[in-house]
Nucleic acid binder design. Sequence first.
RNA 1: GCCGGGGUGGCGGAAUGGCAGACGCGCCGGACUCAAAAUCCGGUGAGCGCAAGCUCGUGUGGGUUCGACUCCCACCCCCGGCACCA
Length: 823
Amino acid sequence: MNDRGERFNPTSYERAWRDRWEADDLYRASDDDTRDKFYLLTMYPYPSGDLHIGHWYAQTGPDTVARMRRMQGYNVMLPMGFDSFGLPAENAAIDRGMDPAVWTYANIDRMRAQFRSMGDMYDWSREVVTSDPEYYRWTQWLFVQFFRAGLAYRAMAPVDWCPKDKVVLAREQVEGTDRHCWRCGTPVIKRDLEQWFFRITRYADELLDFSGIDWPEPIRLMQTNWIGRSEGAEIDFAAEADGVAPIRVFTTRPDTIFGATFMVLAPEHAAVAALTAPDRAAEVEAYVATARRETEIERMSTERERNGVFIGAYAVNPMTNERIPIWIADYVLPGYGTGAIMGVPAHDDRDYDFARRYDLPIRFVVAPRGGSASAGEAPGEAFLPHTDDEVLIESGEFTGMSAAEGIAAISACLAERGQGGPSVSYKIRDWLVSRQRYWGAPIPIVYCDEHGAQPVPEDQLPVLLPRDVDFVPTGVSPLQSHPEFLAASCPVCGAAARRETDTMDTFVDSSWYFLRYCSPNEETRPWDPEVVSRWMPVDLYAGGAEHAVLHLMYSRFFVKALRDMGHLDFNEPFTALRNQGQILGADHQRMSKSRGNVVNPDELVARYGSDTVRCFLMFIGPWDQGGPWNPTGIEGIHRFLSRVWAVAQASGSGGADESAAQPLRRLAHRTIRDVGIDYEAFHFNTALSKLMELTNALGRARDDGLAGTDAYGKTVETLLLLLAPIAPHIAEELWTRRGRPYSIHQQSWPDFDPALAAAEVIELPVQVDGKLRDKLVVAPGTPAEEIERLALASEAVQRYLNGRAPRRVIQVPGKMVNIVTPD
RNA sequence: GCCGGGGUGGCGGAAUGGCAGACGCGCCGGACUCAAAAUCCGGUGAGCGCAAGCUCGUGUGGGUUCGACUCCCACCCCCGGCACCA
């Protein structure tokens, strides 16, 4: 012991405080609190085994904000849980013979303990584990609601199939550009299988509307692009073949129809077989077969040459009445638009390449207004008109119109003639939710020979996942070979029926977990609607940007669909969203066990304590930026907290000069103002730098003999209150050591006095021609004329002015003076 | 290719039209010590100068402005997303 108190030793008290906070239920969020609620959600983790430093990074920022909100008087809920269904558990079962449930729950136990060492203010009484039957019972219940509402349906869809293992592979189990099976290396093939879908496309337009939610612009753009709304027209081209219906194409540029010189169908298009001329059949069949075998990656590649085959049939352009040849080519995708296009080579890059390759006519029908481009000339490249400076040419009655006018007029004309009309296409597809996997929530459907697919009655939920299954890879899902699981009876007629063996995508689990947190113990319904409408929507959601178009869009879809079914009374799940950056390995690569670059925080916590690790992570840079892991500098943060320790325990003798401590008091008020702003904006690094400045100022004041002043003591307590959200343990320890009442986390956030926070004197830079030459020290509010007089009187300014009168004097009040010299 | 984010000392970063480099790391010097560690104090963008001070400096090249890291135009590089969507 010395006069600065005992040594800073966080391990001596951190754990004890966490135990006490937990024993006292300090963070229990009450449903009946009358204060304003603040629901802060962080993305729950997959229980992969151990927490890594990235989890600490992601969680510490939101915890800091949650703690400040609580001190500001909000009823804060910060829940935590586990997204515990998924492939890694099943892999552990296959590779190591472990029961996926045993593996998963052991990981959860370990991670829960690691989470507790962070000191975050989670309300663990609300914990949600998605693989618990008490949870997935309601995931299944939701599936049934979607099914009844027509939002869940079954359809054939191509899936990746390993011909050696005879098993359906998930997208992430297909590796490399040659698309081989991750287990045996055999190239995968496409197979059509019955799959379950959620009809998210029904909400495409509403999902494009982000009004009223405060989300990062990049995320909104990613979702917008993913949904990919395009306005245009559908146009019927009569087929020159007996008994074949007109072929409908989708185009965003109906104004260019007079330039359509051929038609291209996707190889999968339903009309191909009927249209193909006998002498073309062999070539067409070969092409279709190749396209079907081809991998998505090959087909999607923009590098490859566009190729196709003529099918020996013709269609009629409804505007020109010309016969145009029909081709098939794999650059036309079966799933977008109508799977058929009109080829306008003069005004579309892809059609241009195709026409050049196969010597198809290229006809210009759009030209610059007043320009002299003539049709029929071989162009250097296709050009895409997109402004009103261009007009239609060679387009019959539409010649002379702008592109926009042409789109409207031609669409209207086609509609009038019953040959199509305005139309909208989307890139987004319905959400494929079935997985041919074991470790997920079973899809609650049974198949009856008589009544088809029937939902399991709600009072029979959950459909429990059997535990006594064999994980030796046999090529089929373990559920397929489990007779007791398969056997069911039809809910309609009671006859023997077969149970669905597919399980749900884990993104279904995570599309509603934030609702379950509100009333996690409901046994007769998924949530209590009253409690949900009290807590929801989430006020602030913090997590990684990698979920921009998956989880974050699925959750929006769920909320909108459940609203329309009458289960919810709001439109959006997450009012505000903030994305943290990603902590990369020291090698600048994404952290992963296989790369061996994962940083485990446990040993850092053991060495420096939780507060130091928290502060260090928040100090290394802007929270939304992330970056490669580099522990250099953690000592500096440890020193900072050690200085906090020292200045908080300094004691002074009486008779200290209170007025000499006035600058310290002013700095304290300024710091209250600035740190509050920074925490709210997730600028934790600059908040900490201001706390360091305040701490350093306290150290100087102590060395100047001011430790006994009232201002010093007040400033120490201010420092502890501002530090409490980001370094909760040391703040509590020092607070109670000063004899202040437990707990600092139940204190009010300090107020600042704007008069004290304002600067007492201003140091005003004086520039000559924009270059700094001198500084003036003036009181705030000094009149401009006085400042100008002082600036012009400056010796340095006089030297540059050299006897001349200034041409101009520019002042920015409180900021600077600039003197502009003549010439 | 398209969309988004970014590029500032030896390093992490601060400043979003007004003193570039706050805060911290590292390094250099000093105090304390028999010595070291720890701690504390001072210095630390580059160049020139004994100094006062001057010049240059925020990816590159232009521009706007009294004044640009910040705004505009063109380009280079790094990271992320999408990728034949008609």
